[in-house]
Structures are given as C-alpha cells and as structure tokens.
Design a protein around this nucleic acid. Sequence first.
RNA 1: GCCGAAGUAGCUCAGUCGGUUAGAGCGGGCGUUUCAUACGCGCUAGGUCGGGGGUUCGAAUCCCUCCUUCGGCACCA
Length: 678
Amino acid sequence: MAKRFYVTTPIYYVNDVPHLGTAYTTVICDALRRFHQVIGEETYFLTGTDEHGQKIERVAADEKMDPKAFCDRISERFREAWPKLDVVTDRFIRTTDSDHEAFVKELWKKIEATGDLYLGDYEAWYCVGCESYKTEKELEQPGNMCPLHKKAVERVKEQTYFFKLSKYQDRLLEFYASHPQFIQPESRRNEVLSFVNGGLDDLSCSRTSFTWGIPVPSNPKHVMYVWFDALSNYRSALGSAELARFWAPDGKVVHLMGKDILRFHAVFWPAFLMAAGYTDIQLPDVVFAHGFLTIDGHKMSKSLRNAVDPIRLAEELGADTLRYQLLRAISFGLDGDFDHAAMLERYNADLGKNLGNLLARTLGLCVKFTEGKTPKFGEKTPLEEELEKGFALEVGTARTAWEEIAPHRALEATMALSSLANTYVDRAAPWALAKNNDTARLHTTLAALLEVLRALSVMIWPAMPKKSDEMRAQLGLPPIGPKVGEDLFPTKFAPRAGGEALAPGTPLFPTYDKDQVAVLLAKLQPPPENEPRQNPPSKTVAPPDTLKERGQAAPAAGGTEAAVTGVAPEIDYARFESVDLRVGIVATAEKVPKKDKLLKLTVDLGEATPRTIIAGLALTFSPPEVLVGKRVVVVANLAPRDFGKGIVSHGMLLATGPSEALTLATVPGDVPAGARLK
RNA sequence: GCCGAAGUAGCUCAGUCGGUUAGAGCGGGCGUUUCAUACGCGCUAGGUCGGGGGUUCGAAUCCCUCCUUCGGCACCA
C-alpha cells in the first residue's frame, strides 16, 4: 500500500490557453490527489506549462514579443485558471524555471556520459525535384534514384544528438511485462506494446535551427528536443532531497494524460530515465491515458473549444457542478461527451434531488424533533442493519474505484449510498415515530441518517471540496482537513455521540426548474456550428493537451507537416524550367477505395484526353465533387506513378497545409486549360 | 488495406471463464407519501444484446463472416 502519492498532469503547451480538455485532465488529477489525501497519504500534485520550442519562438515573434515574455503571459492564464476550478496544486512548474533547466541539463549530461546521447548526423536522402526527404526503401537502385524524377537524390546532413532509443526496446518490453499496471487502460497498453514490438529508432534529440530551448550543455549551438525537456518536468519538480521521497519505492507515481501523448509517456520517458541510470523501481508506476471529450456530441473544433470556457462554466454553475459532471458523466479512460443539457439534468437528479434534498430533509427533521442537535443512536432494527450493510458495500466500492482511478464509479457508489438513505427515511418514517412519541426510535433513525450524511460529506470531498465544506458546516462538522497518516474515508458505520449542534442552512444544491435550465443552456451552449455535414475527420483537436502539435520525433523527414526549417538547396534556372507547370481544370473527382486520403481525378490539360491524377486530397475535399471545375496547378511532366490495380497517376497537384485542411493552388479567372505557369 | 478496441433499453453504461424470465442509473409513464429543494418512495420501460451463419441440450457470452464507429499504421507524385 502506497504511503505517498504523486500525480501529474501533462504540462500544457503555451501555444494554447486553458480549455475544457485541459480542465478535464487537471480536475481528475486534483480529485485523485484529494482522495489520496483523505485516506491519509502524503501527496504531491504537479501541473505547469511547457514553453520551449520553435513554435513558441515563432508565435512570439509574430506578436513581436520576447519568447519569455510571451510564455509569461500564457503561463499565467493557466496558473490563474486552475484555482477557479478548486484545483490546488503543490507546484506549478514551468520549463523555463531555473531549477528545471538545471535538472534537465544534469539529466542530459548523465545520459551523454553513458554514450546513449551521441552527436551524429541526421542524414537523409533529399530529392530536390520533390523538395522532400526520401526513405531508403523508396529509392530505386542502382544509383539511389528518386523514383519519380529518375535522378539521383542528394545526401543532406544536419547535425543532431541522437538518443539510443533502439537500445531500450527489450528493456522496455520487459518492464511492461513485469509491470502490467504501468500502462492504463488495458486497451492502450496493447497499442504501445505493438509500437515497441515494431522496433524503435534512435531519436533525434536536438535542433540547431532555432534557439528557444534548453541548450545542450556540451554544445550550446544545440537546443534540446522539446519532449526531452518537457517530460523531465515530472522529475525536476522533485529535485530536492525532501521531495524525492515521492519517487521512492513506497510512493506511487501516476502520470495522467490524453491518449494522444501516451506514447511519449509510456516509451520515451521511461527510456530516458533508464538511460540516466534509474532502476525499474524508480520509474513511474502508472501512465494513464484518458479519452477525448466531445461537446454536445460535436468534436472539439478550435472554435468550439473556444466557445466552451471551463472558467465561465464554473462561474455560472459553480466549480463543483462542473467537476462533478467531468468526473461522473464520463467513463474515465474512454472517450466521452460533455453534454450541457445532461449536465444540468444530472445536477438536478444526483445532487439536488438525491443528495441535497436528503441533507435538507434530515436537518429539517432534526430542527423539528431534536432541537437542532445530533440525537443519540439507540438500538438497531433490521432497517438499520440493512442500511449498514448497504453503507459498507457502497463505501467500499467507492474507495476501490478511487484507488483504481475510476472516479465515475466512485461517484456512482456515492450516489447509491445517498439513495439508500432516502429509501431508509421512507421506511423508517421518523415523522410517524414523532407522532407516536417513539423518541428512542426517532433519535436512532435521525442519528443513522446523520451518519450517512457525514460519510457522504467525506466521499464527495475529492470531487466537490466546496460543497463538502458547506455540507459539513450544516452538519456541525469542521471542514475536511486531511492529515498524513489519518484515514478519513468512511469505513465503519459509526454514529456520533449525540448532543452536538447542527447548523442547517440554505439548500446545498438548489435545483434548476425547466425555465432556468432553458435560460442556462441558451447562455452556455455554444451556437451550433455550420459543420459541413459528413465532412470527415477534421481531426479532433485533442482536448487534453496540445502537445502533439510539436511535430515529429525526427526532423521533417518526409513528414506531411513539412516543418520548413530552411529553404532547399539552390537550383539554377534550367533546372526550374525543367518542371512543367500547367493549368488544369478538374473534370471528375472520386475517392480511391480503401485509401483514406486518395482522390482519383481526371484533369483537363488541354490535351486530347484528360489525365488521371491521384492526389492526397480526400480528407479536405469531401465530397470530392466539390473539386470539379476548379483550375488547379499541375506538374505535368512528372513521371507516372503506379498505385496498383491499374491506377496510374500522371501528374501532381500543388497544395499546402495539413492533410485535413489543405489549400489547393488554384488559378483565378478563365485561363485556358493547359496554360503554362512560369 | 493492415493491426487493435468497440457496437446491449430514449441516454450513459454494467454484465461475457456459456445456463433459470438480459441488468443499473438517468429520462419517460403510472401510483403513492408528506419530513424535505413540487422533493422522496414503489411500480413500469417489454430492448432482434450491430446483421447473418455455425458449435452446443443451451450463447449477449465460443467460432466464422459481414456491416458500422473509434484509434494506430499505410496510402498523399
């Protein structure tokens, strides 16, 4: 049984501001930490911001700001946001913090000393005609020919530090095997296993093309790869000897993150630590990837994400209501939907009618019949026996669920206990007992109810700390003040002595009537988007974090993201002239079966018959017919490429952008098909 | 296309080492109590357990196949 509990969110990249996705991750961590606090463990909760990288350098430049100043501004938005959701962190770390930088440099040096970080050339084959890198297997032999241009490709070199990730493949697999809990949930584990089983390449771990990052100690021209820098925060934050105890055998280290960045946490991070000499026992215990949220059934597009502000929700409804919805409504680990209407419905049902009303009716009875004081618990009847049985069951279920990182189940059990108490009141009918002057039974009944309420006030604390405080105040109890070594989470049904003052107050969770619900929804729900129906996968913007946007593990080798770090080598005019660019008019367009991205076009180039061109446009242009009639730019003298099944492409369209949001190079006006561009 | 996960009542999900009438919560409907926030309690939903086929005395639960959804990979001349 762990005595210490250390939980982290990913550090959020400052190219975005807090939104519902990041709030989700952060709230869950806070709730988990609170649970572990309340059972008497020593806890530490870390969040923060990730601030280095070329992207930030650029955005800052665009805003004519110093990168650090830019980071200060955005980081502050995160720092300010979380307390508004009743999130209490032990530290808000920034990758620009000096102790972090110092730690990362030390970590780097340690690994470099073992030889697992080595300076090498990132070498790749580059075809000037294609303006892109080629992999070995793409080339035609002999002569390393570009298959399209039938010309030899060039060898391009960039110096970079590599991390010997390949060396850790087996050790990682062994680690996963001996620590089945390491990657959760289970289904994600398989994904990672197959990735690692598929073989690991060494990781390019430094850049020289920009400067906004932590310099490599032995070679300051190089800046460390952002992931190396960022992942290290989990460790750098515990740099002091005093804090290192959280990362010891009797401590449990849990990293929570969205499923999109699981790989970095489950593969790279432990490998870095292994390389730096950490033993298995010093690696994190659990890497838990949760799902993505949709909002009212819609994927989180950028605009939708901006329209649904967690801070505003918290201000409007109370942080506790938002927290409850996030924790209870979404099966943790799976993708989930954040539905505004469902949230209010659930609030009314669970919190208002079930729990809130239970408190009100119980205290009401006490005011009437026990002078507002806690009564004495007397002899049990079968009713109390049954209540106790249910109490033990639900309390146990809730505890286990929290331990297993299943907050939705924990809260389900919590509400089940509240339901049980409502049933119990009805059966015991204290108002009838009062009428019959059966004071002993009356008191026993009320004391039993107060005991359930006391337990509930503890059980909701991880999810709804403020409401717990209010509830306990009404029950005449002090707010939860967790102490290390003291397990406050209910186990035994143990009514209070009696004679203590109660302090009934206003309803804990006032319900919203139909009209109020309508008003709130109108106010909070984002306006419906004009989503082009069936416009596929505008890629879900990963809510939980935006770290993915940092680019590939290796330099832009043939990646579709074409992070243009520099302009391709110079060519002479003759070479340029050899590329025959023509205006083409799209005649037909259809999807290539079984290929997600490919469209088969016929394009009129003013020739006898239109040409067939295969292009990777399907993600952006749906249905493909929208392309018909467009004047596009075609590379007309590109060697044909066979896609199998008799599909051959005779040319290429010019376009830019990510595959799900491409911009086609088009020609305005009525230029005839076949006109040459130069 | 390859690999993986999933498809169970209006909604969110549980159940699956095969076994009596397939479950819970919410919502809906009906009834009822009065301590309470018009709240509680009781009853109810009759759902082809994605489709089809097979194994078996018996399948939501095992096998095959198909469909759909979601991931990862591939495809982007």
